[in-house]
Computed example of a mutant assay.
Amino acid sequence: MTTKIVVSGMRPTGRIHLGNYTSVIKNWIKLQKTYSCFFFIADIHSLTTNLDNIIKLNYYTKIIIKEWLATGINPEKSNIFIQSHIPETFELHTILSMIAPVSWLERVPTYKAEKNAKTYGFLGYPILQGADILILNADYVPVGEDQLPHLELIRELVRKTNTVIKKITNSSIDVFKEPQPLLNYHKNILGIDGNKMSKSKNNTILISDESEILFKKIKKIKTDEKRINISISGTPDNCNIWKFHEIYSNIKTKKKIKTECLTAKIGCSDCKNILYKTIEIKNKTIIKNIKLYEKKEYYINEIIELGSNNARKIAKNTLKTLKDKLNIL
């Protein structure tokens, strides 16, 4: 393991679904083998768009950590903590807010697209993201291609902050380093309605779905719309079930399914049944692990405390360095 630091977080707005697992968690499991990883529950971030649902915030915070552990995030290799437990992050956020131009924030695609939640916190969301990353002196941030603009804004902020501080202190030393992206190339999983899998759209398949619920959800997944009966050959690339098979099924199964779909030897219902059995095996293992961690509340609290302490050691040093430069006592 290198001393290079990786920082990434997840908002506690609902339980982990297959989209989260394939695009984020599986990547984290790989990264923890190579880097010094800090994975956090972004509880304060969740308030920007989930303020009406805070009654479940505490529950989701804890259950998601248990789900991380159940899927393979190892607390002996990764630091797991809660965003709100690192007060230095919010002090840094305030300082960075004094430097970041408002025009930079107004051009962020998610801000321009949002029509209802345009609060001060929503506008400043990228600055808080930057503080989460910079307070831990991160070398890398795992991102998908769609998240690169967000990271680039943070990198711009680093350059501007370094320039401002070097100018006012007559120094040539940068305070912050620019975090580099660790691109995570993954196949997107759509929800059971054919749209992007999202907790807000209620179209998810959870890693904690028991067999009966899982079966019902998989049966609802949209397939190739042009294949109206089994006698018509299918087009796997146009079928959401096939996208699941690409991720979850083994090579032999994928080859068989693709060949039989193209030659009209397998129907969509049978294809869904095979997928169900594959995911069911995975889910059963995860569910079993979750139930074990649900009996270990003291252990979960210990993990959070240890991860928070390790994060704060770095955070305190980062903040002190910055405040010394700015003559803040």
Rank of each mutant, 00 (worst) to 15 (best):
Y111C: 02
G72E: 12
I86S: 01
S103W: 01
I99K: 05
G124W: 04
Q129E: 14
K66F: 01
A117D: 15
N79F: 09
V141L: 14
G124R: 03
L128C: 02
N79L: 01
I127P: 11
N74E: 15
F122D: 01
Y111A: 07
L69M: 11
W68H: 05
Q129V: 10
L128W: 08
D132R: 01
R107F: 00
Q129L: 10
Y125A: 00
M98T: 13
I65P: 15
P87L: 10
E114P: 02
P109V: 00
P87R: 05
I82A: 07
I65D: 08
I135L: 02
I73P: 13
I65E: 13
L69S: 06
I65K: 11
L69F: 10
V141Y: 01
I80P: 14
S103E: 13
Y111Q: 04
Y111W: 09
I82F: 14
G72L: 08
G144S: 05
F81L: 07
E106D: 13
A131T: 01
S97L: 01
Y120N: 13
Y140P: 12
A117V: 10
E91A: 03
K115N: 13
L96R: 12
W104L: 04
P126D: 11
V108T: 10
L92D: 08
I64R: 00
A100Q: 04
S84H: 03
T94L: 10
M98G: 02
M98A: 13
V141P: 04
L128S: 04
K112N: 05
I127Q: 03
F90A: 04
G130W: 03
I73S: 02
P142K: 02
T89A: 00
G124K: 03
E76I: 00
I86L: 07
N137P: 01
Y125C: 02
E76R: 07
H85W: 07
D139T: 03
